[in-house]
Design a protein around this nucleic acid. Structure first.
Length: 501
RNA sequence: GAGCCCGUAGCUCAGCCGGUAGAGCAACUGACUUUUAAUCAGUAGGUCUCGGGUUCGAAUCCCGACGGGCUCACCA
């Protein structure tokens, strides 16, 4: 169906025609169905709280003004359930209290309309807190009907495409997105309280760096150049530390990766990235634990989550185990004792039983260890854990391990088998950084589309001197999934990417 | 990108064993004036996602397209 056909059908829709006729009826009464303001005195939850002690059957002389969306009408409109963002309040429309224009207007109201009501507060004999409407203001006439009141909007596609309807109908959807806001606010406040400076760095990059991923390409007309939507803010944030803008910086914002969609991948997703001068990755482990337990505490009240029926205790400290150690525990193979060729063979042997990927002959020792980890360890890491001892060849921006040149000072934090955080002792040696980039460029030339590109200006920045520095990234969407028991990333993103209809 | 599953009234769903489509809610008409998914009586509402095919006959069987979900691959 084309847009034009859909629009035509909407115009033909009898349910819509009825509402349009009522709209005209309201105008005929001299009522503006789309007015400019309504001065309300209370939200529903505020009234509930204030009148918690009001006895059933009791009336008050208190005049209040409330506003919200009509969600139900009973007894031919005599009782109206009015919902606002805070909750529900019942409205009573009776000729003994409601003015004549209000009585006429009620007959033209529909479920879904937004109205404002002024009236006295009472509690009905059956115990429902109620406003006896003296006047009714139409605040927005709805031309489309709401979904079914009991089952709500269940169709997942419609829930994502018409999130506004989902939010009207499904309290759980409102709760999830409110918790998301709570997570972000908690992290921001936590970092600001620790003297981190919040900054914003470019979304449009000439060279997409800071991660291994395929970027979106776009075009700037005036400059006539292609630009890339950023895959990570990392390199710009460290430039700010080089400049001494602050010793601690952070950014909470979107990244874009041109890869497949899944219940755990949206093309645009939100990360927290932060950098702190003069500390190493061990400080980042402590900070990760602080931030995540603080958010759980803020939105759940306890440092414990329940995800898909699995209870997970987030209480710190979390164990720190090396990738090689975990792989050996799972497979009996000590990759630290293998050379690159043997490691490749061992990892490929682990993949042999499944349809999994295999390593090419050029793959390094680190790629082999990483594959073994992904195949045999990753999804077993349910309780929070910091995986340390990452291979150097898959970590071009991390400083070498102090004791083992094959490794770097990097960790990833896993919860429920998902990578939630990724952090390093940042590589600050410009010559080493150039060599790492060059190795990436060779991998790229060999066909690895996700290998990182050489960013000359970033190397220049390092040549002016980046202090010893810890860096940390936390994936906000997945963290929110865990904290809201959401099975799909689309549940925690208000407007997830969908194919246009 | 591959495999499996789904698409019926505005919404939630039956019907799928082929015989021209049904319920509840929403809407409309009326009753009822202290209800709580209000109730009662009645009315109206459908290119069964779209396009082909098989058949006397297709919502139902087959093929294709479109949209979605899940799994896998890439990845956070």
């Amino acid at each position: 169906m084309t847009d034009h056909e859909r629009e035509h059908r909407d115009v033909q829709d009898p349910l819509r025609a009825v509402r349009l006729a009522k709209l005209d009826g309201l105008k005929a009464l001299g009522i503006d169905p789309y007015p400019y303001e309504f001065a309300r005195t209370h939200e529903a939850a505020g009234l509930d709280q204030r009148y918690a002690g009001l006895a059933a059957g009791a009336e008050t002389g208190d005049l209040v003004r409330v506003a919200g969306r009509i969600r139900a009408m009973r007894n031919s409109g005599m009782f109206i359930d009015l919902h606002d963002a805070s909750g529900k309040i019942q409205i009573f429309c009776h000729r003994e209290c409601l003015d004549p224009q209000g009585q006429a207007a009620v007959r033209l109201l529909d479920i879904g309309d937004l109205i404002g009501v002024e009236g006295h507060v009472r509690r009905t004999p059956r115990g429902e807190l109620t406003v006896n409407a003296a006047t009714i203001s139409v605040l927005a006439k709805a031309l489309r009907p709401l979904p079914e009141k009991y089952h709500g909007l269940a169709d997942v596609e419609l829930r994502y495409r018409q999130r506004y309807l989902d939010l009207i109908m499904n309290p759980a959807s409102r709760e999830t997105l409110r918790r998301r806001s709570g997570v972000v606010a908690t992290m921001r406040n936590h970092l600001l309280a620790r003297d981190y400076l919040e900054v914003e760095t470019p979304m449009l990059h000439a060279i997409p760096g800071g991660a291994s991923a395929r970027p979106f390409v776009t075009h700037h007309n005036a400059l006539d150049i292609d630009l890339y939507l950023r895959i990570a803010p990392e390199l710009h944030l460290k430039r700010l530390v080089v400049g001494g803008l602050a010793d601690k910086v952070f950014e909470i914002n979107r990244c874009f990766r041109n890869e497949g969609l899944s219940p755990r991948h949206n093309p645009e997703f939100t990360t927290l990235e932060l950098y702190e001068a003069y500390v190493d990755y061990r400080a980042m482990m402590e900070l990760t634990e602080e931030l995540i337990t603080a958010t759980a505490q803020a939105v759940l009240g306890i440092p414990r989550i329940e995800y898909g029926g699995t209870g997970i205790d987030l209480s710190p400290p979390w164990p720190r185990r090396s990738m090689a150690e975990l792989v050996e525990a799972a497979t009996g193979i000590d990759f630290l004792k293998l050379d690159a060729a043997a490691a490749r063979d061992a990892a490929n042997a682990l993949a042999a039983n499944t349809a999994d990927q295999r390593l090419s002959d050029e793959a390094g020792w680190g790629n082999a260890l990483e594959l073994a980890f992904a195949l045999r360890v990753e999804d077993q890491l349910i309780e929070p854990i910091h995986v340390i001892g990452f291979p150097r060849d898959i970590s071009p921006l991390a400083k070498a391990d102090r004791n083992d040149p094959r490794l770097v000072e990097r960790f990833e934090t896993y919860i429920y088998g998902w990578e939630i955080a990724n952090a390093f002792s940042e590589l600050t040696d410009p010559q080493d950084q150039r060599a790492r980039f060059e190795a990436q460029m060779r991998a790229r030339a060999a066909g690895d589309e996700e290998a990182q590109m050489l960013d000359e200006d970033y190397v220049s920045a390092l040549e002016y001197g980046l202090p010893p520095c810890g860096g940390l990234g936390i994936g906000i969407d997945r963290l929110v999934m865990l904290l809201t028991d959401s099975p799909s990333i689309r549940d925690v993103i208000a407007f997830p990417t969908l194919r246009p209809r």
